[in-house]
Amino acid sequence: MKEECLLVIINQSYREGMTQEEVYSVARKSWRISSSKLSTLKYVFAVSNSKIVGMFECYDWNEVKDETDLEYNGEN
């Protein structure tokens, strides 16, 4: 079965040893995608220097106008 995914490049923001919460916080700011594609996305991968440093499964999408609108809870 084919799953659609989104790769988010975080080269400049990533540093070795970041927690998944920190990776999510950096990567989520870059998730800009057409609303028509949201229903097909299952996973978002955070990538730094060609290495996957975070993987997040998409359960739901929310429009965020301010970065304080959505906090990481380990399930987002």
Rank of each mutant, 00 (worst) to 15 (best):
M1E: 14
E3D: 11
E3Q: 15
E4F: 13
L6W: 06
L7E: 12
V8E: 03
V8M: 04
I10H: 08
I10C: 04
N11R: 14
N11Q: 11
N11A: 03
N11C: 08
Q12S: 15
Q12W: 09
Q12I: 05
S13I: 02
Y14N: 06
R15T: 15
R15E: 15
E16K: 13
M18H: 03
Q20K: 12
Q20V: 05
E21K: 09
E22H: 07
E22W: 02
Y24N: 02
S25K: 12
V26Y: 07
S30P: 00
W31V: 15
R32L: 04
R32W: 05
S34D: 14
S34Y: 10
S35D: 09
K37A: 11
K37P: 00
K37C: 07
L38V: 03
L41M: 14
K42D: 05
K42G: 01
V44P: 00
V44Y: 01
V44E: 00
F45R: 01
A46F: 04
A46N: 04
V47H: 05
V47R: 08
S48W: 01
S50Q: 14
I52H: 08
I52E: 08
G54W: 03
G54I: 01
F56E: 05
F56T: 01
Y59M: 06
Y59T: 08
Y59A: 08
Y59D: 10
D60W: 11
D60M: 03
D60L: 13
D60Q: 15
W61I: 08
W61D: 00
W61S: 06
W61E: 02
W61Q: 02
V64N: 05
K65P: 00
E67P: 03
T68N: 14
L70I: 11
L70R: 14
Y72V: 12
Y72L: 05
N73D: 15
G74R: 11
G74Q: 05
E75T: 12
E75N: 14
E75P: 00
E75K: 08
N76G: 06
N76F: 06
N76A: 14
N76C: 13
